[in-house]
Design a protein around this nucleic acid. Structure first.
Lengths: 120, 120
DNA sequence: CTTTAGGGGTAGGGTTCG
DNA sequence: TCGAACCCTACCCCTAAA
């Protein structure tokens, strides 16, 4: 249909990151309205920005452990339909790489969220 | 966050609809204070009721976007490849449709508008 | 001042497609 | 199967009108 899955380009991703650095994470609409990024992110919505940012963040941190949460919620249906014979080859994963060199110094206390019951 | 996304249950939705039928749409506070629904909607605010009602109405109009897709996808048979999987945990979601015969001001023109070009 | 109505926007969950 | 893109729901904030 109209949007057959528009993949994010490097430019859009860079613009998104720059926008987050500039305005802070969560200010998708602000980033979108910024003339600096609006040119690149013209086809994106604020929701798209949020989703993309989530995806980036998730993939960056977790290199091999994101199923835990999912498995906890939705019991993973084991392929054991009938036969239960199968040597469980416990593959000892040597997970010790995943050097997260990505400086995620953007998210943090940027959002002050000062909702201290403003009095008129 | 304080509100970890409290999804509306069928009971709450039914109570909301019943309240609308009983007191009328727009009387959120009245519905909320009603001892009959206050038990179920104790955790909800009048604003929440309003929002939920808005969402329900919006969803009701569109009978070709989400529902069609979902139904199409769920009814679609798996690949012709014969497989012996599919344990199928009968998680039939019970969805009772409360036919609210109230005159909702949503009727317009059979919704042919698939595009929302809202420009402030 | 309280409530309702409508407009915006964000976060999270869940689904679809490659 | 997994991941990325996308859609939907809930919640909240703001402003104007009753």
């Amino acid at each position: 249909m109209g949007a057959p899955k528009q993949k994010w380009t490097a430019e859009e991703e860079a613009a998104l990151k720059a926008g987050v650095v500039k305005h802070g994470a969560g200010k998708w609409r602000t980033i979108l309205t910024d003339p600096e990024f609006s040119s690149v992110l013209r086809m994106r919505s604020n929701v798209d920005l949020k989703d993309k940012w989530r995806n980036i963040n998730v993939t960056a941190i977790w290199g091999s452990r994101q199923k835990a949460k999912l498995a906890l919620k939705k019991s993973l249906p084991p392929p054991k339909i009938d036969n239960i014979h199968m040597s469980s080859s416990i593959v000892v994963h040597h997970a010790e790489e995943v050097a997260v060199t990505k400086a995620s110094a953007v998210s943090g206390g940027t959002s002050s969220t000062s909702k201290e019951q403003i009095s008129s």
